[in-house]
Amino acid sequence: MGRTVRVKSFELVAKDINDVDVKLLHALSIGVGWPHRPKDWDFLRRAGHGIVAVDGIGRVFGSAMWFPYGHEFATIGLVITSPRTQAQGTGRWLMEQVFERCGDRNLALNSTHAAYHLYLSLGFTKEATVYLWQGEAVSPPPPVPALAGELSSLSTANIGEITALDERAFGANRQKLLALLSEGASISVLRRGGEAVGFSMKREFGRGHVIGPIVASNDWDAVHLTAVHLKDLAGQFVRVDTREQTGLFADFLQQSGLGVNDTVSTMSKGKRFLNRKENEPWVYGLAGHALS
Rank of each mutant, 00 (worst) to 15 (best):
G2L: 14
R3A: 07
V7H: 09
V7E: 03
V7R: 05
K8R: 14
F10K: 14
L12K: 05
V22R: 04
V22D: 03
L25N: 05
L25P: 05
H26S: 13
P38F: 03
K39D: 15
K39H: 08
D42W: 00
L44F: 05
A47R: 07
V52A: 13
V52K: 00
V54A: 14
V54F: 11
R59I: 07
S63N: 10
A64Y: 00
F67G: 04
P68Y: 10
F73Y: 09
F73N: 07
A74N: 06
V79H: 04
T81E: 01
S82I: 10
R84C: 09
A87W: 10
R92L: 12
W93R: 13
L94G: 00
A108Y: 10
S111D: 09
H113A: 14
Y116I: 08
K126W: 01
E127P: 00
L132S: 14
L132T: 09
G135P: 07
E136C: 15
V138F: 12
S139H: 08
P141L: 11
V144D: 06
P145F: 08
A148M: 04
A148R: 11
L151Q: 13
L151V: 14
S152Y: 14
L154V: 11
S155C: 12
S155F: 07
S155W: 09
A164Y: 11
A169Y: 06
A169K: 02
N173I: 04
Q175H: 15
Q175T: 09
K176R: 10
L177V: 11
L181Y: 11
E183Y: 13
A185K: 04
S188V: 03
S188N: 11
V197N: 06
F199V: 04
S200E: 00
K202M: 06
H209R: 13
G212M: 08
G212F: 04
P213N: 01
P213W: 06
P213H: 00
N218P: 10
N218E: 14
W220H: 08
A222D: 06
H224Q: 10
T226C: 05
V228C: 06
V228N: 00
H229G: 02
D232P: 06
A234L: 10
V238T: 09
R239Y: 09
V240F: 08
F249T: 03
S256K: 03
G257R: 04
L258I: 11
N261Y: 14
D262R: 14
V264S: 12
M267E: 01
K269S: 04
K269C: 13
K271V: 15
E280K: 15
V283W: 11
G288S: 01
